[in-house]
Amino acid sequence: MTRTPATQIGFIAVLLWSLLALLTVGTAPVPPFQLTAICFAIGGTIGLIWSAASGGLTRLHRINWRVYAFGTAGLFGYHFLYFSALRLAPAAEAGLIAYLWPLLIVLFSGLLPGEHLHRNHIIGGVISFAGAALIVLKGGAGFQAEAFTGYGLALLCALTWAGYSVLSRRLGDIPTDSVAIFCLLTAALSTLAHLALETTIWPTTTLGWGAIIALGVGPVGLAFYVWDIGVKQGNIQLLGVASYAAPLLSTLVLVGAGIAKPTWALLLAALLITFGAALAARAKAAVSDSPATR
């Protein structure tokens, strides 16, 4: 597969992730570990069915256990942090802070072999983090001291996913079928954590069950398979920048559902984060086109 189709496939994940905040809010009051376990069990099962139908099950036996450990740590860590952040902070604010990961992917990609970090990467990073600060201090519902833990978890969530995505680039020879095992192992760990730390609470409405199933099929299912293809075979910098469509779409979805208010501060924060990522990506293109890198 060439870079352009792989990049386009990867962007499907961005569209699915724009629904993550809304669907997660709709699953309340299910505890985060229980929710993670159910959703990843659905996503992993879908992956195994797809792998079996395409004759990929035999490839799974040849993959090193360290790869499975890496993928499980990335998926389990990211979703635990994300779901927890949404329960401890306002959905729009926590979601936009978590969506610093596209910018971090652009920045971290400079550490890959053959890549270079330009000063505009740093400037773009400062601008985007300024947008995140605006969210925490003035955006949406305003700064809430009791939500500080949620804001911190959202930032850790961004760091986790950016690291997973960039390091996945180094595993380009690992088949996407492996994501099914990442999902199932994440479901198993989440189940253990749920039994040890939480009280089981099932959805009380049909809407709640529908949100869980939708999460498992889309944002916590198909999205990870298409993202794996994109970051391994596509243009990872372009995917990183394009991923900033997700927080904008996510916020619009939350506003449309009546969960978030369409404040000017929230819009300005989204624009700052997006502009910072675009500036970083433009620097990436300038470095790639320079005579020194040819």
Rank of each mutant, 00 (worst) to 15 (best):
G125N: 02
V166D: 00
R170K: 15
L159A: 15
T149C: 06
S128Q: 09
T149W: 06
A158I: 13
A162W: 01
G114Y: 03
L134D: 06
L137K: 06
S168D: 07
G150Y: 13
A130M: 13
L156N: 14
V126H: 08
L112Y: 01
A132H: 11
L167S: 09
G163P: 05
H116S: 11
G124E: 10
G163F: 13
L153A: 14
L137Y: 09
G140M: 09
S165P: 13
R169L: 00
H121K: 00
I123G: 03
F148E: 11
V166G: 01
H116E: 00
F129P: 03
G139R: 10
E146W: 00
L153W: 05
A147F: 08
G152T: 08
A132S: 10
I122L: 10
H118N: 08
H118V: 04
C157H: 08
S128N: 07
A147T: 03
G140F: 09
I127Y: 05
G114D: 06
G114V: 06
G131D: 01
L117C: 01
I123F: 07
F143M: 09
K138W: 15
I122D: 02
L155T: 07
F143A: 00
F129H: 03
S128G: 14
H116P: 00
A133P: 04
G125Y: 04
V166F: 02
I135T: 11
W161Q: 10
G139C: 04
I123D: 02
Y151G: 03
V166S: 01
F129D: 10
L134S: 05
V136R: 02
G152L: 14
A130G: 08
H116F: 08
N120S: 10
H121R: 00
I135A: 13
P113R: 05
T160G: 10
I123Y: 03
Y151A: 06
A147N: 01
A162Q: 02
E115V: 04
E146Q: 01
E115C: 04
G150A: 10
L117P: 03
Q144H: 15
L137F: 09
A130T: 13
A145G: 14
H121Q: 04
R170A: 11
N120R: 12
G124I: 13
E146M: 00
L159W: 15
G124D: 11
E115W: 01
G114A: 05
F143T: 02
